[in-house]
Computed example of a mutant assay.
Amino acid sequence: MSKRDYYEVLGVARNAGDEELKKAYRRAAMKHHPDRNPGDKAAEAAFKECKEAYEVLSDGGKRRLYDQHGHAAFEHGMGGGNAGPGFHDVGDIFGDIFGNIFGGGGGRQAPRRGADVGYVMELDLEEAVAGIEKRIEIPTLAECAPCKGSGSADGKVDTCATCHGRGQVRMQRGPFAMQAACPHCGGSGKTIANPCQQCDGAGRVEEDKTLSVKIPAGVDNGDRIRLAGEGEAGPAGTPAGDLYVEVRVRPHAIFQRDGDDLHCEVPIRISQAALGDTVRVPTLGGEVELRIPAETQSGKVFRLRDRGVKSVRSRAPGDLYCKVAVETPVNLTAEQRTLLEQFEASFSGEDARRHSPKSATFLDGVKGFWDRMVS
């Protein structure tokens, strides 16, 4: 059974900070802790899974390796087996370094694999929110079909006579002995007497690969989807790399996204703001009614619960925040201008301050400022 993505296990985005990781781990560990779920094997397995995920993502070096190679970073000999998920202990590190320099360690070499491939997919907000399946075409190195990736026209691959299959040779430089890639086989440990004409013995050919990628509902900018084994084909007998599809969401004409919440601006007339009204506002699920109370000021924000984006992880919906913008009327008719002039004339002297709370506060602040300047 393949391992789940560590970010998915903790329910965080790939750009989550240390504090967010810590909080997510505490929540998950508390939920699945064996003491709270006695005898529950599924909870015990989930607890171990979130612990392993946090051990990797909370360590800067391990996290960089995981982001680059996924779970493969800790498999296929890329790390030791006794120091957590796929990492050497101190003794292993010094053994590898000095073993390679002075010829020790028996020339251990981690199996190679194909390179990972990155692809940026641009989506409209609606596509990111609802989820979509898209076909993409990527240039990559694929396994050569005629030789089935062996690089040999007749299928025969011999052990390199120079390095005896180790892929490395010992080189003497004065008093120093060093390990280096075998110049005869290029470090593969194998030689081919009859190379495949299609790939010239490389076992891989350049081609454009078409894939169908399922984008889950609720993804956001920077989210990455890993397709295991869909990267470049590895050298003969080694696994392929992975494909990482990074999501980029295009700017939207109406909504701005903040996590699982959406924000939009709702323009209303001055009469609607003063007298109150009910207006229709857009949401991702269609228009809904928003009640504007009387005496609403420009900049007032109204919250519509559960009208945002459903999280790609928890599936809990965010909210929609509507910010009111009171518009100044333009292109007035003569009658409208006369009515506005009469309206303005109705405000006189100190009585006008009762009807303009922000203006009154501003004027009081200006008066206090000048009084302090004079004194």
Rank of each mutant, 00 (worst) to 15 (best):
P111M: 12
R112C: 04
G86W: 07
G104Q: 07
Q68C: 02
A110C: 13
F94S: 12
G86N: 08
D89T: 11
D92Y: 14
M78L: 08
A110D: 01
G80E: 06
V90Q: 15
R113D: 05
P111W: 00
A83W: 04
A73F: 11
I101L: 11
R63N: 10
H76F: 13
E75D: 02
P111D: 02
G77T: 02
D67K: 06
M78S: 13
G91S: 14
I101A: 10
M78V: 03
P111I: 05
H69W: 14
D67F: 04
G103F: 01
A115P: 03
G106R: 04
G104W: 05
A73I: 09
F102Y: 12
N100M: 12
G95F: 02
N82F: 10
G86H: 04
D96H: 15
G79F: 05
G70W: 11
M78E: 08
R64D: 14
G106C: 06
G106K: 04
D116K: 02
R108K: 15
Q109G: 05
M78K: 12
G84Q: 00
I101N: 08
D96N: 15
R64S: 02
D89N: 15
G103T: 01
F87Y: 14
K62Y: 04
D92R: 13
G86P: 02
G95L: 01
F94C: 10
A110W: 03
D92Q: 15
Q109T: 09
R112K: 15
I93Y: 07
P85L: 00
L65P: 09
V90L: 15
F102L: 13
G91C: 13
G84S: 02
L65E: 05
N100W: 14
G61T: 11
R64M: 11
R113L: 12
D92E: 15
H71R: 11
A72H: 04
G114D: 09
F98S: 14
R112M: 08
I101G: 07
I93G: 04
G95A: 05
G79C: 11
G77N: 00
G103Y: 01
H71F: 08
G104P: 03
F74N: 13
F98K: 13
I97Y: 11
P85T: 03
H76V: 11
R112Y: 03
A72G: 07
P85W: 06
G80C: 07
D96L: 13
A110V: 10
D89L: 03
H71A: 15
L65Q: 13
G81F: 10
G95C: 06
G106F: 00
G80P: 02
F102T: 08
I97F: 15
F74Q: 09
I97E: 02
R108I: 05
P85D: 00
E75P: 02
A83P: 11
G105V: 04
D89G: 14
Q68I: 02
G95K: 08
R113Y: 06
L65T: 03
G105R: 00
R108W: 06
F74K: 09
H69L: 14
I101Q: 11
R113G: 10
D89P: 03
V90E: 14
G70T: 05
A72C: 07
A72I: 03
G91W: 11
R63D: 03
